[in-house]
Design a binder for these strands. Sequence first.
DNA 1: GCCAACGTTGGC
DNA 2: GCCAACGTTGGC
Length: 152
Amino acid sequence: MQNYWLMKSEPDAFSINDLKRLKRSPWDGVRNYQARNFMKEMNEGDLIFFYHSSCNPAGIVGTAKVCKNAYPDHTSWDKNSAYYDVKSTPEKPRWFMVDVEFVEHWSSIVTLAELKQHPELADMRLTQKGSRLSVMPITKSEWEYIVTLLKK
DNA sequence: GCCAACGTTGGC
DNA sequence: GCCAACGTTGGC
């Protein structure tokens, strides 16, 4: 069964243009348990909204898909990595990542401000005050609704 | 197991 | 750059 997700990235660190250029990439560096657990639930072929955060404007800029199920994030035991975690080892990995593949880079951005205006999207974690989760599930109806926003 | 203190996220 | 909201840590 295909599921839908939203993943945040700061474009200065990793943007949709980076993914477009690379075609596929590991989604490393997630160090939040809820986000990690959602990645573990992902399956190859699941679709992803690619969200640019900490920029102006923040919003969804395109889509990607899961092309490799969750596996240990090796940057967590790399002492030279910014994502190093002393409690994660190859024998007992604490953090996981998936690989994602570029699908679409939209010609326009669906901004957070716009998403917040639609009652249909009020249940999304993204549109709720104070939400910082960087990987979250999206319902099929939310996915389809957001795609129609794009065509307007 | 509680909770204060701290560090981080991320919109504005 | 500010700061509200959140997650994590660690003392007790």
